[in-house]
Amino acid sequence: MKGNQRYEQGEAMTVQSNPTGVTTELDCSGLLCPLPVYKAALVLNKLEDGALLRLVTTDPGALEDIPAMTRQRQDTLVSVEEGADSQTFLIRKGIAS
């Protein structure tokens, strides 16, 4: 693979996964810092306030980076789950009222 394709993995997909609305899914498995934050931000920038993003990462640094990202962006980290080799973050865009 050449050029941008190398980090093009992790295209956002929109799925119906909760009763109240749509959750966007982003798989950043295999990507190292700063790519999970970079790609999550690209997706979050396009979402409406209150929309949900489920982000999967394998970079161990993401456990610190994603909470830092939501704090700095003033988004809301709804939940964090740590699997054997991956982490799953549920993020709501904006500050929950």
Binding site: R71, Q74, L77, V78, V80, E81, G83, A84
Partner: peptide, 19 residues
């Protein structure tokens, strides 16, 4: 197998006022 980490209040303090 998944496990929830420490309470979110410890990871993420209350959101601050908009800058």
């Amino acid at each position: 197998m998944t496990q929830t980490l420490e309470p979110l209040s410890e990871i993420q303090p209350e959101p601050t006022e908009p800058r």
